[in-house]
């Protein structure tokens, strides 16, 4: 017991040493980043490029993970405010309930920027947004679907994620192209089911397995991101229908790209998280310089199929 007490009394000394030991740093400030989750590599890539670009511009970076929990994200905002950071980069866990946290940052004078997904709460000030043009990406997916199914058309399952606005836009863009196609062409493409894929492998697998039972003549699947597309592939393979059913994903994460190269997925409209991370920091640097900034920058998605995958040096 005595040892503990001695240790306790030694603490002020330790504190003093730490105070003496710390040198001043010449950083311009801290850019804090709170995405929806870091378990999705997409947000990790954005974070990596935020870090690279910020450090080049003399800023430190603080990255935290709220794990899809708005409460945690709000707590992180409080921590950022206590730390008096230069700017906050946010991917809202929930586009509405994150509002009060953003307001708190607004009140503290800390500029908030969003990347990928927007904040839709009322009475908040977002200085700038960088994201993918999800509607246009959905249109690309629609075009890819028409290519994949060819002349005769077919029956399609959509794996959606209704609580993410970005994914709703993807489905809307997809349907717009498909509807336009159906008006002009004889080979109609029919959406036979829209199920929740939860944006992950597990749910993507379950929903697809169920849909395969209900629709023995399914021809293709559009999944709103790579994890759910890969889950769908597992179900299709299990039913031994991988030769007949074409899958189109979204995002262009590494394992998604690999699956495209291996022919498991037909193609992806890919996002460019590297550009997003870079652009958002450039936006912050401009803001800090007192220049006028564009409130919204949308990066167009591009289509990525086997042809691109075969040229990709990042893949095995």
């Amino acid at each position: 017991m005595k040892k503990f007490l001695t240790l306790l009394s030694a603490l002020p000394a330790i504190l003093l040493f730490a105070w003496l030991g710390c040198g001043g740093d010449k950083s311009k400030g801290v850019i804090a980043y709170t995405p929806q989750t870091l378990s999705n590599p997409f947000f990790g890539v954005i974070g990596d490029h935020i870090r690279a670009e910020a450090e080049q511009n003399g800023y430190e970076v603080l990255i935290v993970d709220p794990d899809y929990d708005v409460k945690k994200q709000s707590d992180q905002f409080d921590d950022f405010i206590a730390k008096n950071v230069t700017a906050i980069v946010l991917v809202p866990c929930d586009r509405l309930s994150v509002g009060p946290a953003v307001q708190a940052a607004n009140k503290a004078g800390i500029p908030v920027f969003t990347v990928d997904a927007k904040c839709a709460a009322e009475g908040v000030k977002i200085e700038g947004h960088v994201g993918t043009d999800n509607f246009q990406g959905g249109e690309l997916a629609g075009k890819a679907m028409i290519d994949a199914l060819g002349e005769k058309g077919g029956k399609v399952l959509i794996l959606d994620l209704k609580r993410a606005h970005s994914c709703v836009l993807r489905v809307e863009g997809f349907k717009k192209v498909i509807n336009a196609h159906n008006k002009e062409s004889t080979g109609k493409i029919e959406v036979v089911a829209e199920l929740d894929g939860n944006g992950d492998r597990t749910k993507g697998y379950q929903s697809t397995a169920d849909a395969l039972q209900a629709h023995s003549d399914l021809d293709a699947i559009f999944a709103i991101n790579d994890p759910s597309a890969l889950g769908a592939y597992t179900a299709v393979k299990e039913a031994k229908r991988q030769d007949k059913i074409k899958i189109i994903g979204f995002d262009g994460q590494l394992d998604g790209k690999q699956a495209i190269k291996e022919g498991k997925i037909y193609g992806d409209p890919i996002q460019h998280p590297d550009k997003m991370g870079k652009l958002i920091v450039q936006l912050i640097v401009k803001y800090q310089a007192g220049e006028e900034i564009q409130p919204e920058t949308l990066i167009p998605a591009t289509l990525y199929t086997k042809a691109e995958a075969d040229q990709d040096p990042d893949l095995k």
């Binding site: 929990d69 708005v70 709000s74 509002g99």
Partner: peptide
């Protein structure tokens, strides 16, 4: 309290 924090009743909260 959680709802009050966000001025929103969120079925996803509390996980």
């Amino acid at each position: 309290m959680e709802a009050s924090l966000h001025i929103t009743g969120d079925p996803k909260s509390g996980t």
